[in-house]
């Protein structure tokens, strides 16, 4: 479960050695866009040695590998042998990409004695959005991250401050995630100096149904964590519902302060409590 995921360039020792200090729920170590073609080998070596020998690591580690049409992607996946990576972030995800990665992972896992891995699909192409309902059912998938920069490029449109142009894509991600019980992760807010804009846009994204947001600077984390956390109101409501349910566990539906409470609502309350506990909010 996440609220915030922080991108860290895989070739930057200063950032890596402090990756565990930042307030991100998960850290995305990037081997793809943040790394120039000449430095792919350097970054991979650094990430490998960091993961295997650093005495301090982030709680949850996501690795963004290079896309499957590159020569680096299989070498990147060798880093799974460190057994320190919790999630793989698959760039340019669409049906074909997800199938191919899965097949390669099947062989990799059967040939080596490795822990299973969860995937996060980075949807950043028109095809990815169009095919989202198909690959969202994939059993390794646990979350979908929207990549609006590349997507708008693909659509040959400009990003705007209102983010109106990504409304459809955001909605597609949210619906596909809700349908398949995945975590929807919103695209990073790219202007790192605009804290007010970040807060406003994140609040809107949350209201649509996004559950988390990727960040490109540590200074964005505090706001993102706050926005995507359940509010105190939510937590108190959930605790009341849960208490009332526990008092009469066998009653399917009951009233609380004049409102009907039934199984889906109890489930939602449980989810809020679980989140609140995980993120130390209670």
């Amino acid at each position: 479960m996440f609220r915030s995921l922080l991108f860290i360039p895989g070739n930057n020792p200063s950032m890596l050695q402090n990756a565990d200090v930042f307030l991100a729920d998960a850290v995305i170590i990037d081997l793809e866009d943040a790394i120039s073609i000449k430095e792919k080998d350097n970054a991979r070596n650094l990430v490998h040695n960091y993961l295997t020998t650093s005495s301090v690591l982030p709680k949850q580690i996501v690795l963004r590998i290079n896309s499957i049409d590159t020569v680096w992607y299989k070498k990147d996946l060798d880093l799974l042998k460190t057994n320190k990576i919790n999630y793989l972030l698959i760039p340019k995800a669409d049906s074909k990409t997800i199938i191919e990665v899965n097949e390669y992972l099947d062989t990799l896992f059967s040939n080596n004695n490795l822990d299973e891995i969860k995937l996060i699909a980075l949807v950043e192409t028109a095809r990815g959005i169009t095919e989202i309902d198909k690959f969202a059912e994939n059993k390794r998938l646990c979350a979908i991250l929207l990549g609006a920069e590349d997507l708008t490029n693909d659509l040959e449109i400009k990003r705007s401050e209102t983010n109106q142009e990504i409304f459809y894509a955001r909605s597609k991600v949210i619906f596909a995630c809700a349908t398949n019980k995945l975590i929807s992760i919103d695209t990073p807010f790219t202007n790192i100096n605009d804290i007010v804009g970040l807060e406003k846009d994140s609040a809107f994204s949350k209201s649509l149904g996004m559950k988390a947001r990727a960040c490109i600077h540590p200074n964005q984390l505090e706001i993102v964590n706050r926005i995507y956390s359940p509010s105190n109101e939510d937590i108190n409501w959930a605790l009341e519902v849960f208490k009332a349910h526990q008092a009469n566990p066998n009653v399917g539906a009951f009233q609380l302060k004049g409102k009907m409470i039934d199984k889906p609502i109890i489930e939602r309350a449980k989810k809020i409590i679980e989140k609140a506990k995980l993120f130390n909010l209670m």
Binding site: N45, Y50, T53
Partner: peptide
């Protein structure tokens, strides 16, 4: 640089 950074850079230099 920390030890793992030194080792990584050396390994890349060797590969290169």
């Amino acid at each position: 640089a920390l030890d793992y950074t030194i080792k990584s850079r050396l390994l890349t230099a060797i590969e290169r």
